[in-house]
Amino acid sequence: MASLPKRIIKETERLVSDPVPGITATPHEDNLRYFQVTIEGPAGSPYENGIFDLELYLPDEYPMEAPKVRFLTKIYHPNIDRLGRICLDILKTNWSPALQIRTVLLSIQALLASPNPNDPLANDVAEDWIKNEQGAKNKAREWTELYAHKKN
């Protein structure tokens, strides 16, 4: 396999040696550009007590191109569609090479804490969220209960 850019090595080292609270990111042993990620649902959010699986992939052009991230655990969220794709500006047009894996994951965690139904990816969920926020949150909580790992 092609040699890994220094940038990726450094980031990986630091993710292991100095992990972000509530987030784990482990590179796949066969492909060091592929990470298995878990994010804890933020306290006070409908995702609290759930642990969500994600996959993260660093494309060849990283860091000029944003990492590709996707939820593997089913989640009810207006900015995450049923395929787990995430609507987040820094993953698309507002990506900057100065951002990192760490900052991306932190942003996703922040997105769980404060969903943005006005910039939806999952339209039906967003609609639900706007019309009946409490109901939507309850459903998100149910889904967390159903699909996410339990925090012990």
Binding site: D18, D89, I90, N94, L106, S107
Partner: peptide, 15 residues
């Protein structure tokens, strides 16, 4: 929108 990035960059703990 820009705020989020620069906040993130500013809060960066350099790797």
């Amino acid at each position: 929108q820009m705020r989020s990035i620069s906040d993130i960059i500013e809060n960066k703990n350099s790797y």
